[in-house]
Design a protein around this nucleic acid. Structure first.
Lengths: 227, 227
DNA sequence: CTACTATTCAATTAATTAATTGAATAGTAG
DNA sequence: CTACTATTCAATTAATTAATTGAATAGTAG
């Protein structure tokens, strides 16, 4: 039976919407989107971070590119990928937030992994921002510096985890330290808090990443400056 | 090589996130979610609306249910499905909005289908709301009444498309009429506007559905009353 | 121009997903 | 209890997706 025009229109519309859905139907592509939400990266770098072969990473990036979620630019022999628009990072975040609220298994996995690693205290974001502005608390961004430069919580200083051990002297001992990284499923900040506490600092972990901060309408800065 | 605990944790987290992605990777499931975002429906009703067999519809609903996006309750021999949480409807909308902004093909398909059917004028939502409150414009919800009752733009009256022809006398001729339905890819409102104009009414189509209205922080009412 | 680097592509194999069909299940009217 | 309704499940077939491997491509240093 010939489809009526309305039905054909509907089918085509949902096929288009499904292009986005299919792009995010793979754990590997979701991890790549998560990483790219923090800033641009090369294929080799992404492969390394996500524990994938370069060929497989490239394949997944082609799929994301076909769905217009990421873009690429050549830099010599390197190809640097980025999210095509901030809206893509926001979409990734909304998928993550929905999963967190709907899938008890995700909560269990996370609780089990982070147990005893840090004290996740409910942080009042506005209060934290106010205290940052008054210089009463130190907010540490423990991601790689390129991610910091791409966007960081306004007022945060960059102190990558791998450099933390030898730069402890730069940190104040008379005030609280709040460390953050890429979001609730990133372990960099938890490791940082662990190390800081071992050296007697008063440190807690902020679950938010930059996209969460921005989603709550809070200020995000770019470049090397804290604000 | 044995995976380190961090890598295993990451893999499990993204596998969980992918449960959501996989659930929305099918055009058919996206249509079902779109329909359910407007209000609860039975399997048979969904199958009819989406042009699927009952068995296939049921299969897709099991998949959405496994991802905790929809819930079901028995009513006699009928099973009525609903979105598990308003956040699911909001997520569907964010996927739709992202697709609209990223996929030129979707725009082309839509423009081609709606060409000449209605005048899509940019509607200032706040201004429209103010005019509704002053009684200067009539907002028509042309979806089925159950969808109206589940949630409608505050101030809208329910006048389902199939009943429009014989209820034209209820409509004012001395003021503008704004018709809406399920969102930018629903054709009910466009058809309503066409019919209204043929009978000399001043009518335009509002692209927004209820989830768009709510996403913009605008008031949504439930039940039979307009406000 | 050669030999390297990083990346992408194509072919292959394996795994997953989708629709159909008929059976099974659950609820209910008479 | 029977015969109906609506829905779900399982088996089957077909289509799609995913990872690997080796080849191909593009850029560049010397």
């Amino acid at each position: 039976m010939m489809k009526n025009p309305k039905r054909m229109f509907k089918d085509r519309v949902y096929e288009q919407l499904a292009r986005i859905g299919k792009a995010v139907a793979s754990p590997q592509r979701l991890e790549l989107l998560d990483l790219l939400s923090q800033g641009p990266r090369t294929v080799e770098n992404l492969a390394q971070e996500a524990h994938l072969t370069v060929a497989n990473t490239s394949r997944h990036l082609q799929i994301l590119r076909a769905a217009r979620l990421v873009e690429a630019e050549k830099e010599g022999v390197f190809v640097r990928y980025r999210v095509a628009d901030e809206a893509v990072a926001d979409f990734f975040r909304s998928l993550r937030v929905l999963a967190a609220s709907r899938l008890a298994e995700l909560d269990q996995i996370t609780r089990h992994f982070f147990k005893d690693r840090d004290a996740l205290e409910p942080v009042d974001r506005q209060a934290l921002l106010a205290r940052v502005r008054k210089g009463l608390v130190t907010v540490l961004d423990v991601r790689p510096p390129e991610e910091y430069r791409s966007g960081h919580i306004a007022g945060a200083m960059s102190l990558p985890l791998h450099a933390l051990q030898e730069r402890l002297a730069e940190l104040p001992r008379n005030q609280d330290i709040v460390a953050y990284c890429r979001g609730p499923y990133c372990v960099l900040a938890a490791q940082a808090v662990e190390l800081l506490r071992e050296h007697g600092f008063r440190a807690v972990r902020l679950e938010d990443g930059v996209t969460d901060w921005r989603a709550h309408g809070l200020p995000v800065a770019r470049g090397d400056k804290a604000f």
